[in-house]
Write a protein that binds this DNA or RNA. Structure first.
Lengths: 238, 238, 238, 238
DNA sequence: AATGAATGAGACTTCATTCAT
DNA sequence: GATGAATGAAGTCTCATTCAT
């Protein structure tokens, strides 16, 4: 991407195309969230974008391409954010905490995006061409999930994580659970508060806290000393 | 399938009706899982059930009714199973463990059912009449979620759960996370193994283990003794 | 019709059949009026009659037969009433007045019946087998419309009707106009009052009055002078 | 039809659209007349118009819209014609005569249009949204029916109409009767001649003649003698 | 006599997509 | 590059009617 004259110079064909494309994607994303992907028609999308249905085909060859494009954007920004978040931690536990915290942020700030991926997972992930999904994920987290095993191993070695964790299993399980929780909360939306009586964010952060408690090494140091006072001081990790 | 006309007294209109209804629901459930609810047509369902499209309307007034009927059955059997499971535990922690274990069983034995509910949550729960959902849930768990708060309180009192848990929050967070994890694994299906390299069941049980570790009171006994030997003995809860 | 045990003895098959048949016809007539003949389904009719759709076919071989049956009843009772009414008059003018008055009564007392025939005229009379219609009408007014010509001739002779009327045309024109007016008022129903600001009955009687004024021989009193030359000169207005 | 692409500037999208729309309406009108509104399907209409069923929905969002469009056209052209006709008369009686004559012309020249409105009145006017009907009528005859009262009053004042007419009632009654007669004759169509033995036009004109005779002031000329006592005595016949 | 069940035939409508302008 | 028009293919649902019980 060598300085595509994105925003500034705007009289070019190229920049116009980019803008139109973005408008279509934004309309689509909004509608997909409001009504569900399968309940949105091409006409809905394009009208909301202020163009005519047939024009859309100048930008996307069909509806699926729109879904893929949105998905790609979402994956990318998620992956970038997650990677950045993990850089902030010192210990393995802190890295994991930062990752989960990043996901809490996504849920709080961009629930629509989370819902979109939730839809995709539930409805399409099993039916759409696997190769394409894989290539999307590969682009996003190049080294795949191998890094996770190393992370757990590091944490055990440095003493921030429980020693009895399975390096090849734990992190996948944690990620899956947290993503699952995040998407479920996003999907239920306002129904969460009306049914559970608690704000979404509080629920999600409690989930994170419990999971981190489950990962953390059980008081390795303090064990030799007076364990009594230990808990009261404890604050939510993260 | 030797005895064809099983079920209640056959040959009656009523029993025939029940059987036909069941056939339709089974066909529908299978197809919904295979293709996604919105990608299944009434004609698909009825042909799979061995009847003609118009006949279906003698049993269900429209497609949504079929979805609701399946959903109702699923909710009911889940709720019954969950309640039974929880009766087996002595401590609060054991009850919770039994509940989560029940969900692991669902995932392992009836992934299609789990996937169906996952679809519903992601696609329809926000768009379908709320009242109906609520009445369904009310029928299923009459006392709603109040019991959860009491459970946590009991656990703290009896010493099986961490004392710093929030009785009104924790259990909701746990349930949400575990349901989220369960449904996500069910939705991803075989992709889990090909991407994570681990069987679904192992991942889910690891999730359960970590969460229970996070809930459990931190080694109240060990504090007075030699902590060294403690972990080796530890077994997965459940 | 040799004393068919219609109402009294009611345990017979025959009487049961007659009652069921009547219930079907009554339900149908009501619904036809409420929704329009083509908008009523067999299921509607039979459910309203408290029987099941398939049972209807024990009484009427199809929907059209129901329409014909209702139509036949209506024609018959109208024809009988009209004939009776006309017997009351002494002069031709009085007979005609009595006939029109009878139609005012129908409109006031049985608007639903009038509307039904209006529907039939507008929608079906041109499309349904003509022979059947004719045979229905023949049964109803055996001598057809020939009697009308004689009536006008009598009226002219006796001096109650204008001498310049065309015996073979006038009465048909009058009947057509009055039936047209009657059915239109019945069809418009409550819209008449809200648009014209006058009750249906008042409008219809004014119509009758004007027509009778148009038919009546002009000023029998004036006969004191020279009546001979007056009418011959008259020409059609307009 | 030499010049095919008549109408406004052809070749434009707009003009094409107008032409297509007209073709659809013409096909529909024809079929509605031939078979009855409810017996005509969208497919019938579109095929008759030389397009495909789905194309119709580019022009009318459903069948009802087609009916309304036709109705609107018919109302408008009728109202315009009626207004023009009434301008030709000098006296009130002449105006009324001109109006009725205009309706005779409609019946003779455009029976299909008359039949369409007859159908609508009988079948739909009571069931379709009243507001829409009213707005249609309002557009057509802005001053509504108030003008009619004035007309009768004028006629009485100038001596062309009977002095004992009710200004607020008579004209409504006349219009209703004549419309009723007109539509009935149109609806019965060829059955009129075969049953009554008289051509439609003759019957309708006889109706007009009688009504006008009923409205006209009785023999103003004969006033050469003693006119004073004649009218006051007159009472409603019947 | 009554009716539950079944269904063929179709009606209306939607929508992604193509194509000529 | 944009778009009006057109449409095939499908989908949901309705209903008069038949038939076995």
């Amino acid at each position: 991407m060598p300085a595509v004259d994105t925003s500034p110079s705007s009289r070019t064909y190229a920049s116009h195309r980019v803008r139109q494309r973005r408008r279509i994607l934004e309309s689509a994303e909004k509608l997909f969230d409001e009504r569900g992907i399968d309940r949105v028609t091409m006409a809905d999308i394009t009208l909301a974008a202020g163009i005519r249905a047939s024009t859309t085909y100048e930008y996307f060859s069909n509806k699926d391409e729109i879904v893929w494009a949105i998905l790609g954007d979402l994956f990318t920004s998620s992956a970038v954010g997650a990677a950045q978040a993990m850089e902030t931690g010192n210990t393995a536990l802190a890295k994991i905490a930062a990752l989960l915290e990043f996901m809490a942020g996504e849920l709080a700030n961009e629930p629509a995006k989370v819902r979109f991926v939730a839809q995709f997972d539930a409805m399409y992930s099993r039916h759409w061409p696997v190769e394409r999904l894989l290539s999307l994920e590969a682009k996003v987290s190049p080294r795949g999930f191998q890094a996770f095993s190393a992370l757990i191993r590091d944490g055990i070695a440095e003493g921030s994580l429980r020693p009895d964790l399975d390096p090849d299993l734990t992190m996948h399980a944690v990620i899956n659970a947290v993503i699952g929780a995040q998407r479920r909360l996003a999907s239920l939306g306002s129904r969460v508060e009306s049914e559970y009586g608690k704000p979404i964010d509080a629920l999600f952060r409690e989930t994170i806290r419990i999971i981190l408690l489950g990962l953390r090494a059980p008081e390795p140091i303090r064990a030799t000393q007076k364990p009594k006072r230990s808990q009261p001081k404890k604050k939510r990790p993260s």
